[in-house]
Computed example of a mutant assay.
Amino acid sequence: MAVFKVHGAVFSSPSMRVFACLYEKDLDFQFIPVNMGAGEHKSETFLSLNPFGQIPALEVGDQKLFESRAITQYIAEEYADKGTQLTCPGKAKAPFLVWKEVEAHQFDPVASKLSWELVLKPMFGQTTDPAVVEENEAKLCKVLDIYEARLAQSKYLACDCFTLADMHHLPHLNYLMGTPVKKLFDSRPHVSAWVADISSRPAWSKVIAMHKQ
């Protein structure tokens, strides 16, 4: 089997999605750290992998891929017979495609801003902007209300099995569960149960363990 090389950073949310996918699929990979502080993601070598100069990038055989969600979709489809299914077959394929897009276009823009303000800014010695937090908490509430209604009907977002539509949420959920924003998830019982379920997956535990290495 081809060797997977993941160029990224352990605390990068997009990189974490790719790590989680590979672990769910029981696929071995080589992690190649990219020092963004030193500008390695803008180097000629890295730009040959991703011309936009963003992490992660994946090498597998003669393939060079970038954009984390495209990478996970490729892995899920190309290695469908390995590990966790991660996609929905048959009639469930349509809601799978819908909810995968919901994460990217409705959840991620809000969650990424909150993660930046509440977790990453303090980590880098910068000051959190309360107005930005307040604005995005209100937006997140609207998204989570829709999630609560959906998860009252289905164990996971796309169907009754864990898929990329759920997995893609994990990096920002991991950051936000350590902030006051956690209360917005906890106050919605179906959302809270879903967060606890997907956060306890063994593959995700392996991603978190990478932070300590």
Rank of each mutant, 00 (worst) to 15 (best):
T127D: 08
T84F: 14
V181C: 03
S200E: 14
E78F: 14
D197H: 04
V143E: 12
Q54I: 14
A196S: 15
I32A: 10
M1T: 05
D160L: 09
G90F: 13
S68D: 06
A196Q: 12
W99R: 00
A104S: 09
G8E: 06
H41S: 08
F124G: 08
D145F: 02
V181N: 08
H211F: 13
E40K: 04
W194P: 01
K93P: 02
Q54C: 13
L157E: 04
V207G: 06
V119S: 11
T179H: 12
L118Y: 13
T45Y: 10
A70D: 05
N50W: 01
V98D: 14
A57W: 07
D62K: 08
L97R: 02
A203S: 10
L170P: 02
S205V: 05
F124T: 05
W204Q: 11
D129Y: 07
V195G: 02
S112H: 08
I55G: 01
D108C: 04
A203V: 03
L173C: 08
E24V: 01
G125F: 11
K113S: 00
A138Y: 00
A80G: 10
F31I: 03
H169S: 07
Q54V: 15
D26W: 07
V132Q: 05
V10G: 13
N50M: 08
I198D: 11
D145E: 15
Q30G: 04
A149L: 13
D26I: 05
G39I: 08
P33A: 09
V110W: 12
F31R: 07
Q153R: 02
F107R: 00
G39S: 11
P189L: 05
L176F: 06
F31C: 09
C159S: 13
L176W: 10
P89Q: 03
S43A: 07
V102Y: 07
K142M: 02
S200D: 15
K100L: 15
V102W: 06
S200C: 13
V34S: 09
A203K: 01
K100P: 02
D186C: 02
L157V: 00
L27M: 07
F31S: 10
F162Q: 12
P89S: 15
P202Q: 09
L47I: 09
R17W: 14
P189W: 08
D160C: 11
Y147S: 07
P56N: 11
E44G: 14
P14H: 13
H172S: 04
A57M: 10
Q106D: 13
L173Q: 12
D108W: 11
W194N: 03
V191H: 09
K5Q: 12
Y147V: 00
D166I: 01
A70Y: 07
V132G: 01
L86Y: 01
H105M: 06
V10Q: 10
K25L: 15
D166E: 12
Y175T: 04
C161Q: 15
Q73G: 09
C141P: 01
S12Q: 05
T128N: 09
I198K: 00
W116M: 12
N174C: 08
L176Y: 14
L97K: 04
D81M: 06
A152Y: 05
Q54D: 03
F46C: 11
E134D: 09
A149S: 15
M210L: 13
F46R: 09
G53I: 10
F46P: 12
E103S: 00
V98Q: 05
E77L: 07
